[in-house]
């Protein structure tokens, strides 16, 4: 091989390598590895919700919003109405586009509380996605949305937590963001997504997500699977267990206490 050929290859490779390096630096700067601990939640017999820690590396002088979301579902809710002095269920409203779970956490409180910036994330952003139909007038949308949020918050399925994420400076031009959130026991087993939005000067720099899975294990999983898939066998099993338990208690106490005719 001629030395000129080596030189010409080198001449081509060096700028190419430099080009890829130049491209990857901003790509690296605009990336973050979102880590959830745990990212798989096991719902066992003694489960009462769980605390999930999250951490990520982000570019310096950026703010962060983390959203934990379930899949969008069509859901029927009923309005409370007063009839004959008693509060009962009234007209049915069908809710579309509302996620089963929505939790939003931010490093800068204003990102979720300020009406101007908050419109991009949090409840204001959610409001744009959710639609209502059924026993509702157009003018009632705002009120119903507020009441829908109250219902979901009471079940600990929706929540806004401004300023709970802590950003600390890390090596070089990177910062570390850390935080945690509680996943309520009301959150049904299934797949959830955790979205991390990195914001610089009020503008979205990039967004990435990580999956969060909730699965039922052990006794609850057995009970749930039997109750839903083998209802007849499950019903008879419940009866047999209860009858046997009653008989055993009856026998134990009958032995310890003589009966009087």
């Amino acid at each position: 091989m001629k030395p000129e050929k080596h030189i010409s290859k080198l001449v081509l490779c060096v700028p190419a390598a430099l080009f890829f390096l130049l491209i990857s630096i901003p790509l690296y700067a605009a990336s973050s590895k979102l880590i959830l601990n745990p990212d798989l939640v096991r719902v066992g017999a003694l489960y009462n919700g769980t605390r999930i820690n999250l951490s990520a590396e982000i570019p310096r002088e950026c703010d962060v919003i983390v959203e934990i979301m379930g899949r969008d579902i069509k859901e029927a809710v009923v309005q409370k109405v007063r009839r004959l002095g008693l509060w009962m269920n009234g007209g049915e409203i069908v809710v579309r586009g509302a996620p089963t779970l929505y939790l939003a956490l931010s490093s800068e409180p204003a990102l979720l509380t300020s009406p101007s910036i908050g419109a991009l994330w949090g409840y204001e952003a959610l409001k744009k996605r959710v639609s209502f139909s059924g026993h509702i007038k157009e003018v009632e949308n705002d009120r119903i949305f507020k009441e829908f949020l109250q219902l979901k918050e009471s079940l600990q399925l929706y929540g806004i937590f401004p300023g709970v994420l802590k950003v600390s400076s890390s090596s070089g031009n990177r910062s570390t963001v850390k935080g945690s959130f509680t996943l309520s026991s009301n959150a049904t087993p299934g797949s959830y997504q955790v979205f991390l939005s990195v914001i610089q000067n009020g503008e979205l720099l990039f967004r990435e997500s990580a999956p969060l899975k909730v699965i039922m294990v052990g006794f609850p999983e057995l009970v749930y699977r039997m109750a839903k898939s083998h209802a007849v066998a499950y019903g008879f099993l419940c009866i047999m267990i209860a009858a046997l338990a009653g008989l055993v208690v009856g026998l134990v106490f009958a032995k310890s206490k003589p009966h009087k005719e």
């Binding site: 017999a45 006794f219 609850p220 009970v223 109750a227 839903k228 209802a231 007849v232 499950y234 019903g235 008879f236 099993l237 419940c238 009866i239 267990i241 209860a242 338990a245 009653g246």
Partner: peptide, 20 residues
């Protein structure tokens, strides 16, 4: 119990065991 389990799927054995 059998009817509720078959028709409405609302019998909770875990709950019933603790209660009984």
């Amino acid at each position: 119990t059998a009817m509720q389990a078959i028709t409405n799927h609302t019998v909770d054995l875990a709950l019933a065991l603790i209660l009984l």
